[in-house]
Simulated assay, not measured.
Amino acid sequence: MVEVVSEARSHGGRQLVLRHDSRATGTPMTFSLFLPPQAEQGRVPLVTYLSGLTCTHANVTDKGEYRAACAELGLAFLAPDTSPRGDGVADEEGWDIGLGAGFYVDATEAPWSAHYRMWSYVTEELPALVAAEYAALDMSAQAITGHSMGGHGALTVALRHPGRFHAVSAFAPIVAPSEVPWGEKAFSRYLGPDRAAWRAHDAVALIEDGARVPAIRIDIGAADPFLERELRPERIEAAAADAGIELILERRSGYDHSYFFISTFLAEHLRWMKSRLG
Rank of each mutant, 00 (worst) to 15 (best):
M1A: 03
V2T: 15
V4E: 05
V5T: 09
V5K: 10
S10A: 10
H11Y: 13
R14H: 09
Q15K: 13
L16V: 13
V17I: 13
H20A: 15
S22G: 15
R23N: 13
A24L: 12
T25K: 12
M29I: 14
M29N: 15
L33Q: 14
L33G: 12
G42L: 13
V44H: 15
V47F: 11
C55L: 10
T56H: 11
H57D: 15
A58R: 13
N59T: 15
D62C: 13
R67N: 12
A71H: 10
L75E: 07
A76Y: 12
A76S: 12
A76Q: 11
L78E: 14
A79M: 14
T82N: 06
S83N: 07
S83Y: 06
G88I: 11
G88L: 12
G88D: 13
V89F: 15
V89T: 12
D91E: 10
E92A: 15
E93G: 14
D96E: 07
I97Y: 04
Y104V: 04
T108P: 07
W112M: 05
A114K: 12
M118E: 05
Y121T: 11
T123H: 06
E124R: 11
E125I: 11
L126Y: 12
A128T: 10
V130D: 14
A131L: 06
A131M: 07
E133Y: 09
D138P: 08
S140G: 09
Q142W: 07
M149L: 02
G150S: 01
G153F: 02
V157T: 01
V157H: 01
L159M: 03
L159E: 01
L159K: 02
F165L: 03
H166M: 08
A170G: 04
F171G: 01
A172F: 06
P177G: 05
P177S: 04
S178L: 05
G183D: 01
K185W: 15
K185S: 12
A186F: 04
A186K: 05
S188M: 10
R189Q: 10
L191K: 09
G192Y: 14
P193M: 11
D194L: 06
A196R: 03
A197P: 06
W198I: 05
R199H: 01
A203W: 00
V204Y: 01
A205S: 02
L206S: 00
I207M: 00
D209Y: 00
P214E: 01
P214H: 00
I218L: 10
D219S: 04
I220T: 08
I220R: 07
G221A: 02
G221N: 04
A222C: 10
A223W: 07
A223T: 08
A223K: 06
P225T: 04
P233D: 06
E234A: 08
A240P: 01
A243F: 00
G244C: 02
I245L: 02
L247G: 08
I248L: 12
L249Q: 08
E250K: 08
R251H: 13
Y255N: 02
D256N: 07
D256P: 03
D256W: 04
H257P: 04
S258T: 08
S258W: 07
S258R: 09
Y259V: 12
F260G: 15
F265W: 00
L270G: 04
M273T: 09
K274V: 08
